[in-house]
Amino acid sequence: MAILETANIEKHFGGLIANRDISIKIEEGAITSIIGPNGAGKTTLFNIMTGLYKPDSGRILFQEQDITGWPIHKIVELGIARSFQVLNIFNEISPFENIRLAVQSRKKKGFHFLRSTKYFDDINEEAETVLAEIGLASVKNIPTKELSYGNKRILEIGITLASEPKLLLMDEPTSGLPSSETERIKEFIKKISERLTIVVIEHDMNVVLTISDTITVLHQGRVIAQGSPEEIKANNQVQEAYLGGID
Protein backbone atom coordinates (compact mmCIF):
# COMPACT_ATOMS: atom_id res chain seq x y z
CA MET A 1 0.00 0.00 0.00
CA ALA A 2 1.17 3.52 -0.74
CA ILE A 3 1.61 5.69 2.33
CA LEU A 4 2.19 8.82 0.29
CA GLU A 5 1.15 9.56 -3.24
CA THR A 6 1.71 12.54 -5.49
CA ALA A 7 -0.57 13.12 -8.45
CA ASN A 8 0.57 15.29 -11.36
CA ILE A 9 2.64 17.71 -9.29
CA GLU A 10 3.75 20.83 -11.17
CA LYS A 11 5.93 23.59 -9.76
CA HIS A 12 7.31 26.57 -11.65
CA PHE A 13 9.69 29.24 -10.39
CA GLY A 14 9.24 32.03 -12.91
CA GLY A 15 10.18 30.46 -16.21
CA LEU A 16 11.93 27.52 -14.58
CA ILE A 17 10.02 24.28 -14.22
CA ALA A 18 11.24 22.54 -11.06
CA ASN A 19 8.67 19.72 -11.00
CA ARG A 20 6.75 18.51 -14.05
CA ASP A 21 3.84 16.16 -13.82
CA ILE A 22 5.29 14.11 -10.98
CA SER A 23 3.13 11.17 -9.98
CA ILE A 24 4.78 8.73 -7.62
CA LYS A 25 3.71 6.31 -4.94
CA ILE A 26 5.76 5.73 -1.80
CA GLU A 27 5.31 2.16 -0.57
CA GLU A 28 4.69 1.77 3.13
CA GLY A 29 7.55 0.18 5.04
CA ALA A 30 10.04 0.48 2.19
CA ILE A 31 13.13 2.63 1.65
CA THR A 32 12.65 4.72 -1.46
CA SER A 33 15.57 6.68 -2.86
CA ILE A 34 15.18 9.71 -5.06
CA ILE A 35 18.21 10.40 -7.20
CA GLY A 36 19.00 12.81 -9.98
CA PRO A 37 21.53 15.53 -10.85
CA ASN A 38 21.65 18.85 -8.99
CA GLY A 39 18.71 21.02 -9.88
CA ALA A 40 16.56 18.04 -10.88
CA GLY A 41 13.83 19.17 -8.49
CA LYS A 42 14.29 16.65 -5.66
CA THR A 43 14.32 19.12 -2.79
CA THR A 44 11.44 21.03 -4.35
CA LEU A 45 9.41 17.82 -4.33
CA PHE A 46 10.08 17.37 -0.58
CA ASN A 47 9.11 20.99 0.00
CA ILE A 48 5.83 20.40 -1.78
CA MET A 49 5.13 17.10 -0.02
CA THR A 50 5.53 18.79 3.39
CA GLY A 51 3.66 22.01 2.71
CA LEU A 52 6.61 24.40 2.59
CA TYR A 53 5.67 25.17 -1.03
CA LYS A 54 2.27 24.94 -2.65
CA PRO A 55 2.26 23.12 -5.97
CA ASP A 56 0.98 25.05 -9.00
CA SER A 57 -1.20 22.04 -9.69
CA GLY A 58 -1.49 18.43 -8.62
CA ARG A 59 -2.38 16.73 -5.34
CA ILE A 60 -0.57 15.15 -2.39
CA LEU A 61 -2.22 12.24 -0.61
CA PHE A 62 -0.99 10.90 2.72
CA GLN A 63 -2.64 7.66 3.75
CA GLU A 64 -5.30 8.44 1.17
CA GLN A 65 -6.05 11.83 2.72
CA ASP A 66 -5.63 14.91 0.52
CA ILE A 67 -3.11 17.18 2.28
CA THR A 68 -2.46 19.58 -0.60
CA GLY A 69 -2.15 23.13 0.70
CA TRP A 70 -2.06 22.15 4.37
CA PRO A 71 0.27 24.13 6.65
CA ILE A 72 3.51 22.38 7.62
CA HIS A 73 2.64 21.77 11.26
CA LYS A 74 -0.62 20.02 10.34
CA ILE A 75 1.18 17.73 7.92
CA VAL A 76 3.83 16.99 10.53
CA GLU A 77 1.12 16.12 13.04
CA LEU A 78 -0.13 13.41 10.69
CA GLY A 79 3.22 11.70 11.02
CA ILE A 80 5.66 13.08 8.48
CA ALA A 81 9.11 14.25 9.57
CA ARG A 82 11.92 15.68 7.53
CA SER A 83 15.64 16.34 7.63
CA PHE A 84 17.14 18.99 5.38
CA GLN A 85 19.89 19.13 2.78
CA VAL A 86 21.35 22.13 4.59
CA LEU A 87 21.52 21.43 8.33
CA ASN A 88 18.38 22.60 10.08
CA ILE A 89 18.55 22.43 13.88
CA PHE A 90 18.39 24.79 16.87
CA ASN A 91 21.93 26.02 17.37
CA GLU A 92 21.55 28.16 20.49
CA ILE A 93 20.29 25.40 22.76
CA SER A 94 21.63 22.02 23.80
CA PRO A 95 21.21 18.79 21.81
CA PHE A 96 18.97 17.63 24.65
CA GLU A 97 16.71 20.66 24.18
CA ASN A 98 16.60 20.01 20.42
CA ILE A 99 15.31 16.50 20.98
CA ARG A 100 13.12 17.50 23.91
CA LEU A 101 11.31 20.08 21.78
CA ALA A 102 10.47 17.37 19.26
CA VAL A 103 9.09 15.02 21.92
CA GLN A 104 7.20 17.88 23.55
CA SER A 105 5.49 18.70 20.27
CA ARG A 106 4.47 15.11 19.63
CA LYS A 107 2.96 14.97 23.11
CA LYS A 108 1.19 18.27 22.47
CA LYS A 109 2.50 19.93 25.62
CA GLY A 110 3.72 23.15 24.01
CA PHE A 111 1.03 25.35 25.51
CA HIS A 112 1.77 24.58 29.17
CA PHE A 113 3.03 27.84 30.59
CA LEU A 114 3.46 27.57 34.35
CA ARG A 115 5.35 24.34 34.98
CA SER A 116 9.05 24.13 34.23
CA THR A 117 10.06 21.78 31.42
CA LYS A 118 12.24 20.08 34.05
CA TYR A 119 9.19 18.52 35.63
CA PHE A 120 7.74 16.88 32.53
CA ASP A 121 9.34 13.54 33.31
CA ASP A 122 7.78 11.56 30.45
CA ILE A 123 9.06 14.05 27.88
CA ASN A 124 12.53 14.23 29.39
CA GLU A 125 12.86 10.47 29.63
CA GLU A 126 11.89 9.96 26.01
CA ALA A 127 14.37 12.62 24.97
CA GLU A 128 17.09 10.76 26.87
CA THR A 129 16.14 7.53 25.12
CA VAL A 130 16.47 9.12 21.69
CA LEU A 131 19.81 10.68 22.64
CA ALA A 132 21.06 7.27 23.71
CA GLU A 133 19.85 5.67 20.49
CA ILE A 134 21.65 8.20 18.28
CA GLY A 135 24.75 8.04 20.45
CA LEU A 136 24.81 11.66 21.58
CA ALA A 137 24.09 11.12 25.27
CA SER A 138 27.61 12.15 26.26
CA VAL A 139 27.36 15.54 24.53
CA LYS A 140 23.73 16.24 25.23
CA ASN A 141 24.31 19.35 27.33
CA ILE A 142 27.00 21.19 25.40
CA PRO A 143 25.90 24.03 23.10
CA THR A 144 24.67 22.47 19.86
CA LYS A 145 26.79 24.80 17.76
CA GLU A 146 29.89 23.18 19.27
CA LEU A 147 29.00 19.71 17.99
CA SER A 148 31.02 18.27 15.14
CA TYR A 149 29.38 18.46 11.72
CA GLY A 150 28.74 14.73 11.72
CA ASN A 151 27.10 14.87 15.12
CA LYS A 152 24.92 17.78 14.00
CA ARG A 153 23.72 15.63 11.10
CA ILE A 154 22.97 12.81 13.52
CA LEU A 155 21.20 15.22 15.83
CA GLU A 156 18.91 16.33 13.02
CA ILE A 157 18.00 12.73 12.33
CA GLY A 158 17.44 12.32 16.07
CA ILE A 159 15.02 15.25 16.04
CA THR A 160 13.02 13.62 13.27
CA LEU A 161 12.98 10.28 15.10
CA ALA A 162 11.82 11.93 18.30
CA SER A 163 8.72 12.94 16.37
CA GLU A 164 8.03 9.23 15.85
CA PRO A 165 6.89 9.75 12.27
CA LYS A 166 5.25 7.19 10.05
CA LEU A 167 7.11 8.64 7.11
CA LEU A 168 10.59 10.13 7.23
CA LEU A 169 11.92 12.29 4.39
CA MET A 170 15.70 12.68 4.39
CA ASP A 171 17.34 15.19 2.07
CA GLU A 172 20.96 14.19 1.41
CA PRO A 173 21.68 12.96 4.95
CA THR A 174 25.30 12.14 4.11
CA SER A 175 26.23 15.31 2.24
CA GLY A 176 29.48 16.80 3.44
CA LEU A 177 30.39 13.77 5.53
CA PRO A 178 33.58 11.69 5.29
CA SER A 179 33.05 8.08 4.20
CA SER A 180 33.36 6.67 7.72
CA GLU A 181 30.49 8.87 8.87
CA THR A 182 28.52 8.04 5.74
CA GLU A 183 28.73 4.39 6.71
CA ARG A 184 27.40 5.22 10.17
CA ILE A 185 24.38 7.07 8.72
CA LYS A 186 23.75 4.27 6.22
CA GLU A 187 23.62 1.65 8.95
CA PHE A 188 21.40 3.89 10.98
CA ILE A 189 18.93 4.38 8.12
CA LYS A 190 18.74 0.61 7.67
CA LYS A 191 18.10 0.14 11.36
CA ILE A 192 15.30 2.68 11.67
CA SER A 193 13.70 1.52 8.42
CA GLU A 194 12.43 -1.46 10.36
CA ARG A 195 9.91 0.76 12.10
CA LEU A 196 9.04 3.48 9.59
CA THR A 197 8.83 4.36 5.92
CA ILE A 198 11.80 6.28 4.54
CA VAL A 199 12.30 8.41 1.46
CA VAL A 200 15.88 9.52 1.01
CA ILE A 201 17.41 11.89 -1.49
CA GLU A 202 20.97 10.72 -1.88
CA HIS A 203 23.95 11.22 -4.19
CA ASP A 204 26.21 8.49 -2.87
CA MET A 205 25.41 5.59 -5.22
CA ASN A 206 26.99 3.09 -2.87
CA VAL A 207 24.45 4.09 -0.24
CA VAL A 208 21.57 4.24 -2.71
CA LEU A 209 22.16 0.84 -4.26
CA THR A 210 22.60 -0.96 -0.95
CA ILE A 211 19.73 0.45 1.09
CA SER A 212 16.95 1.09 -1.42
CA ASP A 213 13.94 -1.07 -2.14
CA THR A 214 12.88 1.31 -4.89
CA ILE A 215 14.70 4.08 -6.71
CA THR A 216 13.04 7.03 -8.42
CA VAL A 217 15.13 9.02 -10.86
CA LEU A 218 14.39 12.69 -11.45
CA HIS A 219 15.82 14.65 -14.35
CA GLN A 220 14.93 18.24 -15.20
CA GLY A 221 11.87 18.09 -12.99
CA ARG A 222 10.53 14.88 -14.49
CA VAL A 223 10.48 11.27 -13.31
CA ILE A 224 12.51 9.42 -15.94
CA ALA A 225 12.72 6.01 -14.29
CA GLN A 226 11.49 4.02 -11.34
CA GLY A 227 12.38 0.55 -10.18
CA SER A 228 14.54 -1.74 -8.10
CA PRO A 229 18.27 -1.01 -7.82
CA GLU A 230 18.94 -3.68 -10.48
CA GLU A 231 16.45 -2.20 -12.90
CA ILE A 232 17.82 1.28 -12.44
CA LYS A 233 21.40 0.10 -12.95
CA ALA A 234 20.32 -1.54 -16.20
CA ASN A 235 18.34 1.46 -17.45
CA ASN A 236 20.07 3.15 -20.39
CA GLN A 237 18.23 6.43 -20.08
CA VAL A 238 19.37 6.74 -16.46
CA GLN A 239 22.92 5.84 -17.43
CA GLU A 240 22.99 8.70 -19.91
CA ALA A 241 21.22 11.28 -17.81
CA TYR A 242 22.88 10.70 -14.54
CA LEU A 243 24.90 7.70 -13.62
CA GLY A 244 27.44 8.16 -16.37
CA GLY A 245 28.20 4.46 -16.26
CA ILE A 246 28.86 3.20 -12.77
CA ASP A 247 30.08 -0.38 -12.24
Binding site: F90, L101, G110
Partner: peptide, 26 residues
Amino acid sequence: KMVHSPLGSVLYATKQNEVRAKYLGY
Protein backbone atom coordinates in the same frame (compact mmCIF):
# COMPACT_ATOMS: atom_id res chain seq x y z
CA LYS B 1 7.80 30.38 35.21
CA MET B 2 6.59 31.08 31.71
CA VAL B 3 10.09 31.38 30.29
CA HIS B 4 11.03 28.00 31.73
CA SER B 5 7.81 26.29 30.72
CA PRO B 6 7.11 24.36 27.52
CA LEU B 7 5.54 27.52 26.10
CA GLY B 8 8.72 29.50 26.73
CA SER B 9 10.82 26.80 25.11
CA VAL B 10 8.68 26.87 21.97
CA LEU B 11 8.85 30.66 21.76
CA TYR B 12 12.62 30.54 21.95
CA ALA B 13 12.74 27.73 19.40
CA THR B 14 10.61 29.84 17.04
CA LYS B 15 13.03 32.71 17.43
CA GLN B 16 16.02 30.56 16.59
CA ASN B 17 14.65 28.64 13.65
CA GLU B 18 11.02 29.07 12.72
CA VAL B 19 11.10 26.57 9.86
CA ARG B 20 12.46 23.84 12.13
CA ALA B 21 9.85 24.69 14.77
CA LYS B 22 7.12 24.20 12.16
CA TYR B 23 8.67 20.93 11.07
CA LEU B 24 8.50 19.72 14.66
CA GLY B 25 4.77 20.31 14.44
CA TYR B 26 4.51 23.66 16.22
